[in-house]
Simulated scan of single mutants.
Amino acid sequence: MTRIIEAVQLGQTGAPAQARELLTTLWDEIGPAGDALHCCTLAHHLADLQDTTEAEMAWDERALAAVSELTAERAQRYLPSLQVQAFLPSLYLNLADCHRRLGNTGPAREYLARAREHLAQLPDDPYGETIRAAVRDFVADDPTDRRRR
């Protein structure tokens, strides 16, 4: 997780190409059948570093697939406060956003509905409020609206 977080921070501080390269290398090391926490985290952050919506959606789908394999016990070994179900609103919202930008309003609305179903799982903190606000403000029919968590 240390290497993943370091790469993510590179992307957040203005070096997205380097972050994408490092995260892709880590993904290649662990593979899709690796530790579910690592896979989910890597895929989630790799999605944000893609050049196309299609590539972004593929990584978002990998993140969602990995979270289905992630247990609360595993997540809490890394950080005791982590709640796996709290990952779902953001993951679903990201997929809704990709579908919206691709003009797939039906799937966008379906993923948005799934995000809403899981809002109660979010913590009462700034992260939780950010996701709640993004879900509340999401416009499923506007492909020019690029809001993401």
Rank of each mutant, 00 (worst) to 15 (best):
H38Y: 08
Q76T: 09
Y111D: 04
L112K: 14
G128P: 07
G128I: 14
T24Q: 10
Y127G: 01
G11K: 01
C98T: 02
D145E: 06
Y78C: 01
D141Y: 06
A43Q: 02
G31A: 01
A43Y: 07
R100S: 08
L22A: 12
P123A: 11
H38Q: 11
E61A: 04
D60C: 01
V67W: 04
L64S: 06
Q50F: 13
R74M: 04
T25A: 14
S90R: 15
I5C: 02
R20S: 05
P80S: 00
V139D: 09
Y111R: 13
P126T: 01
L26N: 07
Y111F: 11
D51I: 10
A55D: 13
Q85R: 08
L22W: 12
Q85W: 03
L46G: 01
C98Q: 07
S81I: 06
A58C: 01
A134M: 03
T105Q: 09
D48K: 06
Q18N: 00
Q12F: 11
W59V: 01
Y78V: 09
I131P: 00
G31P: 08
I30Y: 07
V8P: 10
A47K: 12
D145A: 00
A115Y: 14
D28A: 14
Q83S: 10
H118K: 07
E6Q: 15
L37Q: 08
A36T: 10
N94V: 01
V84I: 06
P16V: 00
T24M: 02
N104F: 12
G103S: 13
L102P: 14
T53L: 14
Q121S: 15
A75Q: 07
H38G: 03
D28I: 00
R62M: 02
G128K: 13
A86N: 14
T41P: 04
Q76E: 10
Q76S: 08
D48W: 11
L95C: 08
E129M: 10
A72D: 15
T105F: 15
A33I: 03
S68W: 09
L70D: 05
E69L: 09
T130N: 02
W59I: 02
A113T: 13
L37G: 06
D97V: 10
P107I: 02
G103A: 07
G14W: 00
R100H: 14
H118P: 05
